[in-house]
């Protein structure tokens, strides 16, 4: 019989058994957590981003804004139609472009370009943007997200690969324009 100050043989074994299980659980937790967080850790240092082509410069008439589509650079076998992505390409002049995400800076709905009024309008909550992507009215707090672009061998290429949201690299890779630069 044991009193409160002594530990019985069986009691010690039980505690050791609990400790043993705890150690094994902790060891197993490492791969489990790494597995769970892999979608975050894989994307560190903008590893999801690549340069993708939108087509030749001549497809985009000067002074106009056209819808372009590209295949997301990071794909998995079961992605289906979701790897296609759309963006708005505005050829300002010559090799000077602006490439906007279709995702509204408010909550990500697809904005549509209306050349007649020179506005991007969002069907969800009524956000509107000017032709240069700056905010015109509605709930968005900022202008449209812009992809970094370059013109190489006559092709317009952009750096893309992540869903443009206020927290993604697309939100900050291209400097924000002052709201009055219409």
């Amino acid at each position: 019989m044991s009193n409160e100050n002594t530990i019985s043989r069986r009691g010690l074994f039980m505690k050791m058994g609990i400790l043993f299980n705890g150690l094994v659980a902790a060891a197993l937790a490492v791969p489990v957590v790494r597995f769970l967080l892999s979608s975050i850790t894989r994307g560190r240092a903008n590893a999801y981003l690549s340069w993708v082509s939108l087509g030749s410069v001549s497809e985009f008439p000067e002074g106009e804004t056209r819808l372009a589509t590209f295949r997301n650079p990071y794909v998995t076998p079961t992605d289906g139609t979701t790897v296609g992505t759309a963006c708005w390409v505005r050829r300002v002049a010559g090799e000077q472009f602006q490439v906007f995400a279709v995702n509204c800076a408010h909550l990500g709905c697809p904005v549509r370009w209306f050349p007649q009024s020179g506005l991007f309008m969002c069907p969800c909550h009524g956000g509107a943007y000017y032709r240069d992507g700056s905010r015109a009215s509605g709930p968005p707090e900022r202008g449209l997200f812009e992809y970094p672009y370059k013109v190489e061998n006559g092709l317009v290429t952009i750096q893309a690969g992540e869903l443009p949201t206020p927290g993604s690299p697309t939100a900050s890779l291209v400097g924000k324009k002052p709201p009055c630069a219409a």
Partner: peptide, 12 residues
């Protein structure tokens, strides 16, 4: 967002 989407975009 990446945790929620399981990757960089809404996909498989």
């Amino acid at each position: 967002v990446k945790m929620m989407l399981g990757g960089p975009i809404i996909a498989g």
